[in-house]
């Protein structure tokens, strides 16, 4: 079995809440509270969930842009916590980010050429003569023309700016790109262009992608495997087809039914949840979804459900499946930890 590109094990990120002039810690935001997953080389993983579920924090913790409270992130088998500054720096070349807002993520005072040169300067790559060719190649790859290299970000539309952001992420030949809501700020017709571009890049450069999004439909289009998060926990993880055909967790089912389908003939009764997502400062005990769950049982507010394994690497954490024929080995990480037939490439 190949080593995963990145392995996240029992990752927790808690942010202290400080109050008063002494800045005493009065509580914590349990942004990410014990999640485990792996990403294989060339794989595309989607992390979906609503605001405050910890999806962005999980992504930021993977590149160490936010300090980790406990747990570990292994990059190609090496614990990132054990790496020194230069080790981390080399690693950041391999992990790149694409942000949601193409307006605030590009420096307005820099030309496209400078924006793309910046990472190459930092890492001392593609110097001298190679530089121009590299920039031309990058712009061409993302569907812009090399002639546009000396323009400033404000001279581009939103979709084009997102293309510049993608070119910047590609500048150093990364292995993994993390996209935090890469298409949600874009118009519908432009969104499709960027989704297709990401899919093409993934194929052409054999990239691994992590797409963080609130939009299950977008994630289904791009990703091989989907992780659903709720209040800092993974509630379900499966490959895209299995998740769509056979969602296990009531939250996943609700999320799927809540998405309006662009077909008036298919107006179905949606599952309408009561209330809002509880605060991650004071998450409910037991299963975190029990306050809104349509299938709630007595056990749900008392005991936290364990991650249960179904066929094809499909996992879900829900008490509904306590007495089913699911293999009850406590699955951590949520992806492949024991080699089975279908998982070996």
């Amino acid at each position: 079995m190949t080593t995963p590109l990145a392995a996240v094990t029992d990752l927790k990120v808690h942010f202290p809440i400080k109050k008063g002039i002494l800045a005493r810690t009065v509580g914590y935001v349990y942004a990410v509270d014990g999640i485990s997953f792996e990403i294989m080389p060339g794989e595309t993983v989607g992390i979906v969930g609503e605001s405050g579920c910890g999806k962005t924090t999980a992504g930021m913790a993977m590149v160490r842009l936010t300090p980790i409270t406990s747990g570990s992130v292994h990059w190609k088998g090496t614990d990132m916590a054990a790496m020194n500054r230069s080790g981390l720096r080399a690693l950041r070349r391999e992990m790149q980010l694409i942000f949601q807002d193409p307006y605030s993520s590009l420096n307005p005072r820099m030309t496209v050429r400078q924006i793309l040169s910046d990472p190459m300067d930092v890492h001392d790559r593609f110097t001298g003569r190679q530089r121009k060719a590299r920039i031309d190649f990058l712009l061409d790859t993302v569907g812009l023309s090399p002639g546009q290299a000396d323009l400033y970000p404000h001279e581009f539309s939103g979709g084009q700016r997102q293309r510049i952001g993608i070119a910047r992420a590609l500048a150093l030949d990364p292995t993994l790109i993390i996209g935090d809501e890469p298409v949600s700020a874009l118009d519908v017709s432009i969104q499709a262009q960027i989704i297709n571009l990401l899919k093409r890049l993934k194929r052409d450069f054999n990239l691994s992608l992590i797409i963080i999004s609130h939009d299950l439909a977008v994630v289904e289009y791009i990703c091989d495997r989907i992780i659903v998060m709720y209040l800092g926990k993974i509630v379900e993880a499966a490959d895209y087809a299995s998740l769509y055909k056979d969602p296990k967790h009531p939250y996943t089912k609700t999320l799927m039914s809540a998405i309006p389908v662009p077909d008036p003939a298919r107006r179905t009764r949606r599952i309408i949840l009561k209330g809002d997502v509880p605060s991650p400062i004071n998450p409910p005990g037991g299963c975190r979804f029990h306050t809104r769950c349509p299938d709630r049982m007595d056990i749900c507010d008392k005991q936290e459900p364990a991650m249960q394994r179904f066929s094809d690497g499909h996992t879900a954490a829900c008490h509904l499946y306590n007495n089913t024929d699911a293999d009850l080995s406590h699955a951590t990480p949520t992806h492949v930890s024991t080699p089975t037939k279908g998982d070996n490439p």
Partner: peptide, 20 residues
């Protein structure tokens, strides 16, 4: 044609989205 619809890919419909 350009909006990703939940379930389309799973049901084997249009692997790539149509772009304007």
């Amino acid at each position: 044609a350009s909006i990703p619809v939940l379930g389309h890919r799973t049901r084997g419909m249009d692997e790539d989205l149509v772009e304007i």
